[in-house]
Design a protein around this nucleic acid. Sequence first.
DNA 1: ATATCTTGTGTACACCATAAACAGAAAAGA
DNA 2: TCTTTTCTGTTTATGGTGTACACAAGATAT
Lengths: 289, 289
Amino acid sequence: MARGGAEDPDHGVELLWRETGEEPRQGLSAGRIVRAAVELADAEGLEGLSMRKVAERLGFTTMSLYRHVPGREQLLDLMLDAVRGERPLPTGGDGWRARLEACARDGWELRRRHPWVAEVRGSRRLPGPNAIAYYDHMLGAVAGTGLAPAQMIAAVNLVGRFVDAEALTLVETARLERSSGVSEQEWWGARDSLYQRLDRFPTLTALWEAGGYDRPEDSFEFGLARVLDGIEALIDRQRDEMGDETSGESSGAPCRVCGRPVDRPTSGRPRVYCSRACQQRAYRRRQDG
Amino acid sequence: MARGGAEDPDHGVELLWRETGEEPRQGLSAGRIVRAAVELADAEGLEGLSMRKVAERLGFTTMSLYRHVPGREQLLDLMLDAVRGERPLPTGGDGWRARLEACARDGWELRRRHPWVAEVRGSRRLPGPNAIAYYDHMLGAVAGTGLAPAQMIAAVNLVGRFVDAEALTLVETARLERSSGVSEQEWWGARDSLYQRLDRFPTLTALWEAGGYDRPEDSFEFGLARVLDGIEALIDRQRDEMGDETSGESSGAPCRVCGRPVDRPTSGRPRVYCSRACQQRAYRRRQDG
DNA sequence: ATATCTTGTGTACACCATAAACAGAAAAGA
DNA sequence: TCTTTTCTGTTTATGGTGTACACAAGATAT
């Protein structure tokens, strides 16, 4: 069997999308390794997650893991998808904003329970079924907003990356607080040698004296509200433009591919697709199916 | 001399804020180490930056570096401040938005020239004079917008973290492209084993067929516009509320501490500070000075 | 019974940051 | 000028990482 090693991404895909449940009575298995790794990462963070320690926790040798998991990177992929499947998809309220916000808060909650999730980096991370379901769910939140397809994707990615970035800064402080035993406040509070050099920076000093650093805004709440506001502004703007363009002229059936309104020419055959791109898409779709 | 080792942050502060220019004729110095490290990180990324390689590049032994720099982490602090001093502060156009956007684009450009900047993580990074000047400059961009001090700080932090997060994803793809020799497009394009499992996800499939992934939005441009829109929405909203609250009632001198409008009571002594917090601030200021 | 596949083991390698003790030179003090 | 201290660079050693490779025992198929 062509069981590709660490170099073969398709093996990783098979592992991620395998039907679970066929766990052997005894011995190792991918599922058991993943569970042990998640426990370990929960307890010690991502930098504390080593193949040696996972193996020790299971009572096997280090290299035995490689019989079931291609390598550490692929193990991380499996862990990510595993924790995403722990809870059902967030059922938000009405409207795109409430639903997208619910997704963001759910992602935030996930990273609170498993802080290492935010530390897992790298493009080329293969998504598993749970990650894709989540992603699809987020995309569904902004469907029907009038945004172009690429804009929907960008909006969802923006929210996702925001949550991730925010969680990453949080877990970094937490890690230092645990490893050093000194809280963030204490540590920065003791940096007098730094503060005494900040006098000659006017705005910073003014804000300091105005108490801006005494009761800071909640970084996640503030940022999430701004990002959603920004997306809302885009949606409103485009809806307005759309209304102006097509007022009294279009208002026929929407584009069969992307659902956006279609310009209707005053004379000639009525258009079915909103753009040449959508026309091509539909064509290829007919060819493939 | 109490030359604290790696455990002493104050030593790091001294190094960061030292007057440069007193470079010895020969031998090592913090400045030379930092320059060599920046060159190395530019060429090989942050994971390729090891004390060994820096020392080799300078023709000394590994441990010789520790006579001038407390450790790798502190070297990173020094590197960050060094590259931030390479170019003058961005002189944006008029208005807070143009200036804040100029800062964001400048930060983006910095990370394009030195991709490893985005990879340097961890709270408790000591800022040097250049970093503080930059931060002060960004804060100055949103001064006078009517935002509360903590909101100004949060807004600037949001933009900064956005740029950093965006740059981080970019450098991660670049690193993989270089180490593997396969471009991101090629790699994802070869993942048929993944795509064939995505049919049962409706929104994702619809957006795929609508061409949303063929011409994606520029992630940085899209996100920056949304974030700035979001901040603008907050500013506008607060300005409106402020106008309603104080119309025909305030419009006296602004708060002496933070500059925001002050509610003027209909009877009694006119207020000088906008809030009890600002009053306390001013009091402490008088005590200290 | 023989061959093949699966699973777990032990060894080995090339890295990494940095602690500790040491050696020579330069500078300061007597 | 002689001695003592300080500065600067070196050498050696420790404990950690992921994983390639060769090997061995058991299960399964032919």
